[in-house]
């Protein structure tokens, strides 16, 4: 059936027999997904619209819990424990597993406060520490040069691409282990897209990355592993090159050659 690569290195996350059903839905949106996510590498999720990419991604930081009534089964292992248990500390989990959304989501506050937000939530009040870490995060997100002279200005004055990098800075400022990206460039122009892609590749030295994308070229450009999903199932997970050049599953083959989707 599904062809899932066995990852030899350490895994950042390990999904096992995961099932997810939205509130009121008749059928599960994810069916028996088993998927290792390699540490310090980039895993791309591709597949036709509605196949469950976003649903899977939002399971890693338990975003679905914001909307009562959704049900899940199976397990997702992170740092040696199953994070799907009711006793999981979601606040802690979400500081360890950050997320970047489809559209830039700058908060209605200054650029500085945006980046400092997560740190402040953790109780960091020390001015110099905040200043240093904000600067570092902005530098790591390759946006420091553009905003260093206007940190006090409203973040909504930035361009879409800048805002998206600001959101990345905000996410990495709290030093997470994993970063989840849901089509982070779908609302951006080609130049900004390039910038984000470059940034994502740089980031993998420090964090493990999962990126959902509709763009197969993008998956091929940035990722080390690629998972192909179809109708709520993970059909194939392999090294990116292999998956695109010599897919093991017929469905994968058909999808990447553009037969459907």
């Amino acid at each position: 059936m599904a062809s899932i690569i066995d990852i030899k290195d350490e895994c950042a996350l390990h999904v096992r027999d995961f099932e997810f059903t939205y509130k009121g839905a008749l059928a599960p949106s994810l069916k028996k997904v088993t998927m290792p996510i390699a540490k310090h590498s980039i895993t791309a999720l591709i597949g036709p619209s509605g196949c469950g990419k976003t649903t899977l991604l939002r399971s890693f930081n338990r975003m679905h819990d914001l909307y009562p009534g959704n049900t899940y089964a199976g397990e997702i292992e992170f740092e040696g424990r199953n994070i799907l248990t009711p006793k999981e500390d979601l606040i802690h989990l979400r500081t360890k597993i950050g997320m970047i959304f489809q559209k830039p989501t700058a908060f209605p506050m200054s650029i500085f406060d945006n980046v400092a937000y997560g740190m402040r939530l953790q109780g960091i009040k020390n001015k110099t520490e905040l200043n240093d870490r904000v600067e570092k995060a902005l530098k790591d997100a390759a946006i420091w040069k553009e905003v260093s002279d206007r940190l006090k200005q409203d973040a909504n004055g930035l361009s879409g691409g800048q805002q998206q990098r600001l959101c990345i800075a905000r996410a990495i400022a709290v030093e997470p282990e994993v970063l989840l990206f849901d089509e982070p460039t779908s609302a951006l122009d080609p130049i900004s897209t390039q910038g984000i892609e470059k940034l994502v590749i740089e980031l993998k030295e420090r964090v493990s990355i999962i990126i959902v994308t509709h763009n197969m070229q993008q998956a091929a450009r940035v990722s080390d592993y690629t998972g192909f999903m179809y109708l709520g199932e993970l059909i194939e997970l392999g090294q990116t090159e292999e998956l695109f050049v010599t897919p093991k599953e017929k469905l994968t083959q058909e999808y990447i050659t553009g037969k459907f989707g």
Binding site: I91, L121, Q122, G123, I124
Partner: peptide
């Protein structure tokens, strides 16, 4: 109380 516990409270 840590900062996070305070926030939860």
């Amino acid at each position: 109380m840590t900062a996070v516990q305070k926030r939860i409270f």
